[in-house]
Design a binder for these strands. Structure first.
Length: 809
RNA sequence: GCGGAAAUGGCGGAAUUGGCAGACGCGCUAGUUUCAGGUACUAGUGAUCAAUAGAUCAUGCAGGUUCAAGUCCUGUUUUCCGCACCA
């Protein structure tokens, strides 16, 4: 028997697969649709960073590779593609630091990543590789942007945006984590800038509704729902002593009688009006507070969350529409300008924030829902309850009260039912070089004009220096020859947009491009899209739930609305892998010095061992620490499978002594693979191989089945053994084995016999024994007879195949 | 603060959903092979008591339901994740 030389074996089969093209999906054309049903497996394409892969990356790739390989053996035309999300800041920063063109950096990084991925033997359809920085790709990213613009979903607006002072870019709401830049963790500040925005808010309801029908893991659905944050309530009009009115949004109109003051966001425009009209006596104080609030960073705003600050407006008061009483109006930065109407009615008795504010400023607190002690704290457990001190709704339940008040306010013309969302529009421009140019020009006469689609792609121009500008503009702004252009509408002089798109642009539709990656008449051909879409199974990181996953659903829903893509949702099923941690249980990172490089593992144990260990390490959904000693278990197992060739004997059927276990194994591996439980599927295969070692033999029928089952995890060694054993064809062309349910049942089964729930003895009984016979057999046992003699039998329980429990008194 | 997930041997983790807790692997112990180390193979391995048979205790903690609870219910602690003044 030859030594198991994985270096040779793995290289050999990787080359064979490349040459034969077994993993190339059959492409539908206008005149011929593939006969096989399709199955589209997708994993998030990587950002080709300079560091290369670490062992965390292949977890997801390996998991769906097992699905892809299995589906092929089950007769599906499988699409399992790979590509590169290659625009982005780290590349640009590296390019600046080393004075190399980012395109060159990208090319080198991709080469390295691709080599690493290839060494792991994934069944990717490499001829469909896409690269978001390829002009033939971003031509269509720009095209989609133009469609969004033409449908009123892209607009340019001067606004206060999150700003990362280190990356020199604006940040979308989704990119600010704990008040800091998601990428570099620098505390985010604010900057007023004119930005391209995408109206994702217009799709908030559709994005929510779509979730109900999708097979996404619950935590993904939940996170997207929370992020969209829809709430139902009412916009209520409060008249003011300034002879105008303020609108506040509330989800709890039933607490109107408890509204003892109002608070406006310091940025609210009506303040300027009142100041101009000379209504306010303390303008200086107000100005100071506004300036202070404007300077606070995201981080400071959340930090100081304990101590409420504000200024009472001296000169304008509000009138509570329920009590008709005049109440004071404050400005305070605890009210967000960007949510609802930027103004609230404060109900201190039942809201922690309002309570705190009221205590600070010594404002009246009026209980309107029974149950708490408002002298101590706000009573916020008011989902249900009885209303008090509330005029005509006093004594009603909360839910009745809400409905009654809303009806009355509607009748009186003081309230309109309203829906609000936490979701904000998507800030879509970045002040950087290495991204897709936004195909818009600003004409002196016509304003913003889209480039004609025929002029796409708008190529990212060559540039001498990618250095960041002092002004916070993109380096492209320095290229006069590129910036100055003519208006596509009137031909007059115009300037190009110099910001580029965020990294999330190219990744918002890449999976569509895979269906037809070289199409030059559209994002992909209709035949290709209607055959391949939607994606059947998409696996990716939880960190993308409210970024990439939400953004790409938005783009797809829009493309569906304008008739470009065939289905209402892009992804039928979404799962998420847990992170692979360093050996010390901490997140793997260069700075912690606990990064494991897959190249080293492949060099020492081989790709098959690495792939299997990635899955064997534990529950796929949970994080798991890497262990250099545990990987040896998998390596030994593969060696044992290899050595089985020396124990092979002829046989075209499973032997009686293995038959049950063979069928059980097929069942378990089939089911567990389908549900991404590689750890237990592999454990079952180990159990089977251990049994064959006890028998010290394996026959051909058994060995074939084992090799096919194992091939989805460890494809190279299985192909090699298949060839060595001289079995016909290759494993990739075999059919997935099937089990017979009847044959998974042992003729006799060990039954535990309990007295009052304590196990006394175990019996081997026929699997189909009648309950009465089983109990009789149990009582015949001496150990049981001893326990039951002279005692009253209260109850006898028989669970077929499991246990007997005799309850005695 | 709000929402979610989780807690099982020395370690990673199983447990067909209420039916024999600890599958499988790592590690450890002993034996065989080997000049030796490693490899490989065989056996053992939750804890306590016991010479053995066996008994008792064990799934973060405290109660409860049940013939039977890691699994269901109530309370509680800890950890991880997400959101964080969203009215």
């Amino acid at each position: 028997m030859k030594k198991y030389d994985f270096h040779v074996i793995e290289k050999k089969w990787q080359e064979k697969w490349d040459e034969s093209g077994v993993f190339e999906a059959e492409q539908p054309t206008a005149d011929k649709m593939p006969e096989k049903p399709k199955y589209y497996c997708l994993i998030e394409f990587p950002y080709p960073s300079g560091e290369g892969l670490h062992v965390g990356h292949p977890r997801s790739y390996t998991a769906l590779d097992t699905i892809a390989r299995k589906k092929r053996m089950e007769g599906f035309n499988v699409l399992y593609p790979m590509g590169w999300d290659a625009f982005g800041l780290p590349t640009e920063n590296y390019a600046i630091a080393n004075n190399i063109h980012p395109a060159k950096v990208t090319e080198d990084n991709i080469k390295r990543f691709k080599k690493q991925l290839k060494s792991l033997g994934f069944s990717f359809n490499w001829s469909r590789e896409v690269n978001t920085t390829d002009p033939e790709y971003y031509r269509w990213t720009q095209w989609i942007f133009l469609q969004l613009y033409k449908h009123g979903l892209a607009y340019k607006k001067e606004m206060n945006v999150n700003w990362c002072p280190s990356c020199h870019v604006v940040l979308a709401n989704e990119e600010v984590v704990d008040g800091a830049c998601e990428r570099c963790h620098t505390p985010a500040t604010h900057k007023v800038k004119s930005q391209w925005m995408l109206k994702i808010t217009e799709y908030a309801d559709k994005l929510l509704a779509g979730l109900d029908k999708l097979d996404f893991i619950e935590r993904v659905k939940l996170q997207q729902r929370n992020w969209i944050g829809r709430s139902y309530g009412m916009d209520i009009e409060f008249k003011t002593s300034g002879n105008d009115s303020l609108i506040v949004y509330t989800t709890r109109p039933d607490t109107l009688w408890g509204a003892t003051y109002m608070v406006l966001s310091p940025e609210l425009p009506i303040l300027e009006e009142w100041i101009e009209r000379g209504l306010l006596a303390n303008v200086d104080e107000i100005r100071d507070y506004q300036n202070e609030a404007a300077q606070k960073s995201e981080f400071e705003r959340s930090e100081i969350n304990k101590n409420k600050t504000g200024v009472c407006l001296d000169g304008v008061r509000g009138i509570n529409p329920a009590t008709k009483q005049e109440i004071p109006i404050y400005i305070s930065d605890y009210v967000l300008a960007t949510y609802g109407t930027g103004a609230i009615m404060a109900v201190p008795a039942h809201d922690n924030r309002d309570y705190e504010f009221a205590k600070t400023f010594d404002l009246p607190i009026v209980e309107v829902v029974e149950g708490g002690d408002i002298s101590v704290e706000a009573y916020t457990d008011i989902e249900e309850g009885i209303l008090v001190n509330s005029g005509f709704i006093t004594g009603l339940s909360v839910s009745d009260g809400i409905e009654k008040v809303m009806e009355r306010l509607e009748e009186d013309g003081l309230g309109v039912r309203a829906t609000n969302y936490k979701l904000r529009d998507w800030v879509f421009s970045r002040q950087r070089y290495w991204g897709e140019p936004i195909p818009m020009v600003d004409c002196e006469n016509c304003g913003w004009q889209p480039l004609p689609e025929s002029e796409l792609p708008l190529i990212l121009p060559e540039i001498d220096s990618y250095e960041l500008t002092e002004t916070g503009e993109s380096p492209l702004a320095l290229l006069d020859g590129w910036v100055n252009t003519s208006c596509p509408n009137c031909g007059g002089s115009a300037k190009r947009e110099t910001d580029t798109m965020p990294q999330w642009a190219g990744s918002s539709w890449y999976y569509i491009r895979y269906t037809d990656p070289h199409c030059d008449t559209g994002i992909a051909s209709q035949e290709a899209m209607s055959y391949w879409l939607p994606v059947d199974w998409y696996n990716g990181g939880m960190e993308h739930t409210t970024l990439h996953l939400l953004y790409s659903r938005f783009w797809y829903l829009f493309l569906h609305d304008i008739g470009v893509v065939p289905t209402p949702e892009p992804y039928l099923k979404r799962t998420s892998h847990g992170m692979i941690l360093g050996e010390n249980g901490e997140k793997m990172s260069k700075s912690r010095g606990n990064v494991v490089n897959p190249d080293d593992i492949v060099g020492e144990y081989g790709a098959d061992t690495l792939r299997m260990y990635e899955l064997f390490i534990g529950d796929f959904e949970k994080p798991a620490p890497w262990s250099t000693s545990s990987i040896k278990g998998v390596s030994r197992f593969i060696e044992r499978v290899w050595a089985l060739q020396g124990k092979a004997i002829p046989g075209s059927q499973y032997r009686p002594e293995t038959e049950t276990l063979m069928h059980q194994t097929i069942r378990k591996v089939t089911r567990d693979t389908d549900s991404l439980k590689g750890n237990t599927a592999i454990a079952q295969l180990m159990t089977l191989v251990n049994r064959l070692y006890e028998l010290n033999s394996v026959n051909d029928a058994e060995y074939r089945t084992i090799l096919i089952l194992l091939s989805v995890f460890a494809p190279h060694v299985c192909e090699e053994l298949w060839e060595l054993m001289d079995y016909e064809g290759e494993i990739t062309g075999q059919k997935w084995p099937v089990w017979e349910e009847d044959l998974t049942i042992e003729a006799t089964m060990e039954i535990a016999v309990q007295i009052n729930g304590k196990i006394k003895v175990r019996l081997d009984l026929p699997h189909d024994i009648a309950p009465a016979d089983a109990i009789a057999a149990a009582k015949a046992e001496e150990a049981i007879a001893r326990e039951t003699s002279g005692k009253k039998i209260i109850k006898e329980i028989f669970v077929p195949g499991r246990l007997i429990n005799i309850v005695v008194g």
